[in-house]
C-alpha cells in the first residue's frame, strides 16, 4: 500500500519536473533574439510549416465551408431563415472551426515533423555537437521553429476562414440559390471585427504557441532511440490535439460565455 503511494508520488513529481523543464525550455528558446542569420533560419521554418501547409489547410477550409453551408441550409430552410446562412457560416468558422481545425491540421502536418526532426538531431547527437562547438541549440534550432509556428498558424487560420466563407458562398449562393445580397449583408451585420475575427485570432495565437511548444519540446526531450522518436511524434499529435480542444473550450467560455 505504501509502495503504491510512493509510486503515485514519484509519477506526480515526474509530471511536475517535465512541466518545469518545458517551461524553462520555452523561456530560454523564446528569448532567442533573431540575428541576421537567425532571421534567415526563421524564414526557412516559416516556409516549411507555413507555406507548405497552405495546400492542406486551404482545401480543408473549402470543404468545411461547403459542408457547413449545405448542413446549415437544410436546417435553416425549415424555418424559412435560409437568408441567415452567411451569418451562420461566417460565425461558426471565425469563432470556432478555423482556429481549431487549422491548429489540428497544423499539429498533424507540421508539429509531428518538427518533433521527428529535432528528435533525430538529438538521437544522432547533432545537438550535443552544436553545444561542443559553442552554438546554443535552443537558439539555433528551437527558437526559429517556435517563432515560425507562432507566426504561421494565425496566417493559416485567416486563409482557412476566407476560403471557408467562399466555400459556403459557392454552395449556398451558387448552388442552393440563397440570395447573394442577403448572404453577405446578414454576415456583415452580425460579424463584429474585434469580437469575432479578433477573438478567433487570439485563439489561433494561443493554439500556435501551444502546438509548436509541445512539438519542439517533445522532440528536444525524447529518449534518443528510434522507438523514442516514434513515441514522441505520436505524443506530439495526441497532446497537441487534446490541448487545442481543451483550451478551445476554456477560451470560448472566457470570450463568449458572458463572464465579463
Amino acid at each position: 500500500m505504501i509502495g503504491r503511494i510512493v509510486i503515485l508520488g514519484r509519477r506526480g513529481c515526474e509530471v511536475l519536473e517535465a512541466l518545469g523543464r518545458a517551461g524553462q525550455f520555452l523561456a530560454q528558446s523564446a528569448v532567442g533574439v533573431p540575428s541576421r542569420e537567425g532571421w534567415y533560419l526563421w524564414l526557412r521554418q516559416v516556409h516549411f510549416v507555413g507555406v507548405l501547409s497552405l495546400a492542406i489547410v486551404l482545401v480543408s477550409g473549402l470543404f468545411i465551408g461547403m459542408v457547413l453551408a449545405l448542413q446549415g441550409y437544410t436546417l435553416l430552410v425549415d424555418f424559412g431563415a435560409e437568408q441567415a446562412l452567411g451569418q451562420m457560416v461566417a460565425l461558426s468558422l471565425l469563432r470556432e472551426l478555423s482556429p481549431v481545425v487549422a491548429a489540428l491540421l497544423f499539429a498533424g502536418r507540421a508539429g509531428s515533423a518538427l518533433t521527428a526532426e529535432i528528435g533525430l538531431m538529438k538521437a544522432t547527437e547533432q545537438l550535443t555537437s552544436m553545444e561542443m562547438i559553442g552554438v546554443d541549440p535552443l537558439r539555433r534550432i528551437v527558437a526559429p521553429r517556435l517563432w515560425a509556428g507562432f507566426v504561421a498558424l494565425p496566417v493559416l487560420t485567416i486563409g482557412f476562414s476566407v476560403v471557408g466563407i467562399y466555400g459556403g458562398y459557392l454552395v449556398g449562393v451558387e448552388w442552393l440559390g440563397v440570395f447573394e445580397g442577403s448572404y453577405w449583408s446578414n454576415m456583415q451585420s452580425s460579424v463584429d471585427f474585434i469580437g469575432d475575427v479578433g477573438n478567433g485570432m487570439v485563439k489561433s495565437l494561443v493554439f500556435a504557441l501551444v502546438v509548436t511548444w509541445i512539438a519542439v519540446f517533445q522532440g528536444y526531450d525524447l529518449v534518443p532511440t528510434s522507438e523514442g522518436i516514434s513515441r514522441a511524434t505520436t505524443r506530439t499529435v495526441v497532446y497537441s490535439s487534446l490541448a487545442v480542444l481543451g483550451l478551445d473550450f476554456v477560451l470560448t467560455a472566457l470570450m463568449f460565455g458572458g463572464f465579463s
Partner: peptide
C-alpha cells in the same frame, strides 16, 4: 504567404464584418 495573410485579414475586416 505573409501578404496572403494580410489580404485575408483585410477581406475578413471589410467584406465579412
Amino acid at each position: 504567404f505573409m501578404l496572403a495573410g494580410i489580404l485575408g485579414l483585410l477581406f475578413l475586416g471589410m467584406r465579412v464584418s
